[in-house]
Design a protein around this nucleic acid. Sequence first.
DNA 1: GTCTATACTACGATAGAC
DNA 2: GTCTATCGTAGTATAGAC
Lengths: 210, 210
Amino acid sequence: MLQDKILDAAVEHFGQLGFDGASTREIARASGTAMSSITYHFGGKEGLYLAAASHIAAQISTRMAPAVDAMQPMPDDGPGLSREAATGRLLAMLDGFAGMMLDPTTASWCRFIVREQQQPTAAFERLYDGAMGAMVDVALAHIRIARPDLAERQAKALTVMLYGQCLVMRIGRASVSRILDVTDIGEEEAALLRQQLRDSAECILKGVTR
Amino acid sequence: MLQDKILDAAVEHFGQLGFDGASTREIARASGTAMSSITYHFGGKEGLYLAAASHIAAQISTRMAPAVDAMQPMPDDGPGLSREAATGRLLAMLDGFAGMMLDPTTASWCRFIVREQQQPTAAFERLYDGAMGAMVDVALAHIRIARPDLAERQAKALTVMLYGQCLVMRIGRASVSRILDVTDIGEEEAALLRQQLRDSAECILKGVTR
DNA sequence: GTCTATACTACGATAGAC
DNA sequence: GTCTATCGTAGTATAGAC
């Protein structure tokens, strides 16, 4: 599909260079078409940018769907999930998210998203509403169960902290490589980070009930 | 100083738009000089970019110096720091780092650094060797004391997780605002996040000795 | 040291052929 | 639907005046 090829190239280029830095000429060349096809299909550079955001959101949703769906209330859960069960599910979802952060194929999505996080445009709404919001909501719901001692705002802050430990695997990539004395984060390093995430998160979630 | 004015403008523009997106014309205009002054003082766009990285590293070092220096071995520490003392110092430094992440004036530095983290260039060496490395090393040294049960690589991974919880306050800014239902992260939200960081980090550091 | 003027390249948008 | 051709604008680098 031509439009998908254009969108893939757009995500890659916008992610690397930002909206201003990326060139529609180059995106067209990378997807093997003429620049005017972008005008035709997406109405211009801005339209392409927004479409790229939706494209990313759709891919993330697809990828995280198994983990997020597994956390929806099941019929056989009974009236409420136990603290242990909620903790277990949350750890599994965080591990899935960490896996996504460590997967090299998601690098271009992340570059795009990180720009939007720091300087949000209309594209951020598409990213949050289309993908990130659902992950936050489902995590928060389980944190409420796992840590009933926390007030709502504290539970939200904890959600942020837990996601932060996943994000750093991607965002701090260059530093992580230097800290671990490797040129790139491979299978072995990924496993180490995931295990440490699991230990830390488990400690926080089961930890103290003040 | 003209060169400092140029550097400040360079950090701002390179951070927002990236190397390719930023324009030396605009940087010159913002610092009230002619574009050719950049060529004269820094040798061109690339030289300016590297100088901007060193400029950031110097500012971070200055800013984190009190917290990092306080963690150097003191004469009155005796032969070794206790677990409790190491934990306390580490928590204080993390809180200082979180404060920097939450301070709006550091936004442009962070944008610059985040680009380099994901797609490192020669500028990354200047950032890491000039500022970030020292913070990592001093944190790691205290983690070794606070968590003697961890192997060296696990201690490094834990360093990454702890910094991740600080980073997310800046990197995930737009999402954090949405999660906490505010238009921007103010004093109140900053205090909430720092407290949650402290609780989580304390839990991980004191937590379990397997 | 700092400026203006200029050469050259690449950008986004659009019109029109097929 | 997809292409080529063209227009106006803006980028970096550099030469040379002061």
